[in-house]
């Protein structure tokens, strides 16, 4: 079970529509962002430059350091489909998970952290892959009914203005996410992940060399 987002950076134009779609769907408060589109700013000197945008959200790590560090068991893995989630009723806002997550800022209050501290609710929040819509979905959207539980996708995927975002279980070859990776590899387009010491992210990013040279988050 490896449900995740696969994002095609050849297409992503950094328009932030995914950020707003997520906020409306999940009622995310002002100043908190369950995903952030990071502009990986150009290297080289004008006009010989390249650049790309990298939408960063919870990477659904296989070794999930957040679950390992969470003292109360609020960070857990969904029994049926293995998605890494946070149970709002159990979380006490102790923020122990924040230093544990390589993709989060220690206080969960500055971009591009993937986990955020919600002050009003005193809980830590993050992208849930809209599990309330997609728990049993293969990510191949049903045009006739976008709420079809077998095919629904998160609103950030549905509304993406470039069709860059794909959802699915990488263990299911028929899922949209798996298919887009397979096609990218066939087309010789690079399939990357955002390396981080001690984490094994499931999220994948597709980027062709002729658009830009891969450099993760621009480190």
């Amino acid at each position: 079970m490896a449900r995740t987002l696969v994002i095609d950076l050849d297409r992503c134009s950094g328009c932030d529509s995914c950020v707003v779609a997520c906020k409306f769907e999940n009622g995310v408060t002002l100043g908190n962002y369950w995903n952030t589109v990071v502009p990986v700013v150009p290297v080289g000197t004008h006009p010989d430059i390249d650049m790309y945008w990298l939408p960063l959200q919870c990477q659904q790590c296989v070794n999930s350091p957040c679950i390992a560090a969470c003292p109360t068991g609020a960070s857990y893995r969904d029994q049926e489909n293995g998605v890494v989630l946070i149970d709002k009723d159990i979380c006490q806002g102790c923020k122990t998970c924040l230093p544990a997550c390589p993709y989060s800022s220690p206080e969960g209050n500055v971009k591009p952290s993937v986990r955020w501290y919600n002050e009003e609710a005193n809980v830590v929040e993050k992208c849930t892959l809209c599990n309330h819509l997609t728990a049993t979905s293969d990510g191949v959207e049903n045009i006739e009914d976008t709420t079809d539980p077998a095919h629904a996708v998160p609103p950030c995927v549905h509304n993406c203005s470039c069709k860059a975002r794909h959802y699915g279980d990488l263990d299911d070859p028929a899922s949209d996410a798996s298919q887009v990776i397979a096609q990218a590899e066939k087309d010789g387009r690079g399939v990357h992940l955002v390396e981080a010491e001690g984490a094994t992210p499931v999220a994948r990013y597709i980027l062709s060399a002729d658009i830009a040279a891969w450099r993760g988050l621009g480190v």
Binding site: V37, P102, Y103, S105, P106, K111, S113, E197, L217, V219
Partner: peptide, 20 residues
Amino acid sequence: IVKPGLLSFLDTSAYGQFFS
């Protein structure tokens, strides 16, 4: 000295407020 890891390069003052 918490975060010289992955996100350390993002000196929050510079990139913090603009990701567009």
